[in-house]
Design a binder for these strands. Structure first.
Lengths: 151, 151
DNA sequence: GTATCTGCAAATGCTTTGCATGTCG
DNA sequence: CGACATGCAAAGCATTTGCAGATAC
């Protein structure tokens, strides 16, 4: 939770501008929620953000964190990582493989790719530690949904 | 939820053998839960599996599905997709990027990779539909956790 | 025979929502 | 001033757990 102040301030400035454009109100709470996120190099969960923001706004409630993050995510000002909050999904295929996920119907299809497996592990990722496995997630529109569309 | 019977039976045979090796009891319920998964080309959630299994065992309860899937996943006989059931995590970085996820501490770090972006979209994935975006998830041990280990 | 598994029901924990009050613009 | 945001408390929902009876080996 510690990024150089000037970077954080730059992000905040851009955020304020974007909020004005999108007619989102710049409440004290909303700004501090975003500041918490902008200050972090990791991908904090709601509880972590709540703890952080409470240093500045001791009375802020978790629902405000939830509501703001959801709102900002819908407006593309923050991103939600880990595709969480879906239900658990399982697969009888335990060999390493990749996923094609349909953005419309949510259907997931498996595929393997020697191309992908060879290209990795990217040096960029090795800076953070020792890579063990690589999983590619391709998001797209599946052929079923494509046909079903009138456009 | 429909794969050729011989494929399903082959998977089931391997499953029975693996269970014997791992001293997991081959209960009627467990076998049918696995059959539901082995019969599916998609990645069903618990409710879907429950509905499927209930055709054969009308009295089976959702907890049995949950418990068996969890147990089988721990033994590597099925895999859990989508890294779900974690808490929601957020990111101020809304530009396309990839993730390095530490398998030990769960820390997530961002990186970009022209290599990855260029190599994709794999033709294997194009068979399923129109790819829109690609996200690489590298799992590994982060440098912090690496240092913290005694062995 | 005994450790494991099942089904039931209750509990847990994250997230969402309704409503009255407060605040931004 | 009026629409939108907040805080509180209660509800929702997927998942987990405790326990008594049942079952595989």
């Amino acid at each position: 939770m510690t990024l150089p102040r000037d970077i954080v301030e730059a992000r905040l400035a851009a955020f304020r501008e974007a909020c004005l454009q999108k007619r989102l109100r710049l409440t004290y709470q909303r700004i501090e929620v975003f500041r918490a996120l902008a200050s972090s190099e990791e991908h904090p969960d709601v509880e972590t953000i709540h703890r952080f923001v409470r240093k500045r706004i001791p009375t802020i409630s978790p629902d405000t964190i939830y509501r703001n993050l959801k709102l900002l995510a819908e407006h593309g000002l923050v991103s939600a990582a880990g595709m969480s909050h879906e239900r658990l999904r399982f697969d009888a295929n335990v060999d390493p493989h990749h996923h094609f996920v349909c953005v419309k119907c949510g259907r997931i299809r498996d595929f393997t790719s020697s191309d992908v497996d060879c290209t990795t592990f990217p040096v960029e990722a090795q800076a953070f530690g020792t890579p063990l496995s690589v999983h590619l997630e391709v998001k797209g529109l599946c052929s079923v949904c494509q046909k079903g569309q009138k456009s």
